[in-house]
Amino acid sequence: MRKELLKDPRVVRIVAPLLVGIVLLGSWQLICVAFKVPAYLVPTPLNIVQTLVANFGSLFGALLVTLKITLLAFLCAVLLGVMIAFLLVQSRIIEASLFPYAILLQVTPVVAIAPLIIIWVKSPTPALVVCATLVALFPIISNTVLGLRSVNPGLLNLFKLNRATRWQTLVRLRIPSALPYFFGGLRISCGLALIGAVVAEFVAGTGGTGAGLAYQILQAGFQLNIPLMFAALLLIAATGVGLFSCMAWLTRLSLRHWHESELA
């Protein structure tokens, strides 16, 4: 029975990372205790958890602010990315004319343009959402365009042979073919939306009731409260893992009955 469980891919995907995490955290704790590393340099995992519990109210409120910006930016990136991708695949000329600007948007550091966006957009929350959206947008565009272009030539010729309209070809052939690529873009984009939100918060330096986790990290750094800084980083990392897991679950739910990537 135990051997059968170990051979189950679903069990392995859960148990193997947990075992690695336990070993790493245990080693971290032992090294810090053995070498008497001070908490203001590297806190122990136990110290981080204690700080997280002690400051859970303020950290959880900051997490909700960051998560709201992340989800709004992710939603905007998905909507804009899909619309732009559909526009690009209508013509090779349109794609050749506009896709380089999508690449330019991707390679431009958000830290460089975030101050301008914050100045142009007066309200803090919309400005942060715009910054995070710019970071998360390109994977949706790139993956969706690739998926819409990656159509089986034989099936495409079959649709043409049966005089299918452009709309019928798009809905019944190109979109189903693009779904695996699209969901791959979602898994990348959700993490980038979180990164963009945190970076934008760092640049904006918003405080008060609208402060996110980045502000908590800045305040902890100014106060040399390193355990609090690690606790905020832990929440950011856990949020990123949670978002990725949600997108992976959505991918499996949508593709498990027909696409080979999720059949195993």
Rank of each mutant, 00 (worst) to 15 (best):
T70Y: 08
T70C: 11
L71C: 06
L71G: 06
L71S: 06
L72G: 03
L72P: 03
A73V: 04
A73S: 15
A73G: 14
A73L: 01
F74H: 01
F74V: 03
F74G: 01
F74P: 02
L75R: 02
L75C: 08
C76M: 15
C76Q: 10
C76D: 08
C76L: 15
C76S: 15
C76E: 07
A77R: 09
A77N: 11
V78A: 02
V78N: 09
L79N: 08
L79Y: 12
L79W: 14
L79P: 06
L79Q: 09
L79I: 15
L80C: 12
L80A: 14
L80Y: 08
G81I: 06
G81F: 11
G81K: 10
V82Q: 07
V82E: 07
M83A: 13
M83L: 13
I84D: 08
A85L: 06
A85Q: 05
A85W: 07
A85S: 11
F86D: 00
F86M: 04
F86G: 01
L87V: 09
L87R: 01
L88M: 00
L88W: 01
V89Y: 00
V89K: 00
V89T: 00
Q90N: 00
S91L: 05
R92P: 06
R92L: 07
R92D: 12
I93W: 10
I94N: 05
E95V: 04
E95K: 12
L98Y: 10
F99K: 03
F99W: 04
P100F: 09
P100G: 07
P100Q: 09
P100V: 01
Y101A: 07
Y101D: 03
A102D: 12
I103L: 15
I103E: 13
I103Q: 14
I103T: 14
L104Q: 06
L104Y: 11
L105Q: 15
L105S: 14
L105G: 15
Q106I: 03
Q106M: 14
V107N: 02
V107D: 02
V107W: 04
T108E: 12
T108F: 14
T108V: 13
P109S: 05
P109D: 04
P109H: 05
V110P: 13
V110M: 13
V111G: 02
V111F: 09
V111I: 11
A112G: 02
A112Q: 02
I113P: 10
I113C: 09
A114F: 06
P115V: 00
P115W: 02
L116N: 03
L116M: 11
I117D: 08
I117S: 07
I118F: 08
I118N: 07
I118D: 06
I119H: 02
I119R: 05
I119L: 06
I119D: 00
W120D: 06
W120P: 03
V121E: 13
V121L: 13
K122R: 14
K122P: 12
S123L: 05
S123T: 08
S123V: 01
S123I: 01
P124Y: 04
P124V: 02
P124T: 05
T125Q: 15
T125H: 14
T125D: 14
T125V: 15
T125N: 14
P126A: 03
P126R: 04
P126S: 03
P126T: 01
P126H: 05
A127I: 11
A127T: 13
A127W: 13
A127L: 08
L128C: 10
L128R: 15
L128M: 15
L128D: 10
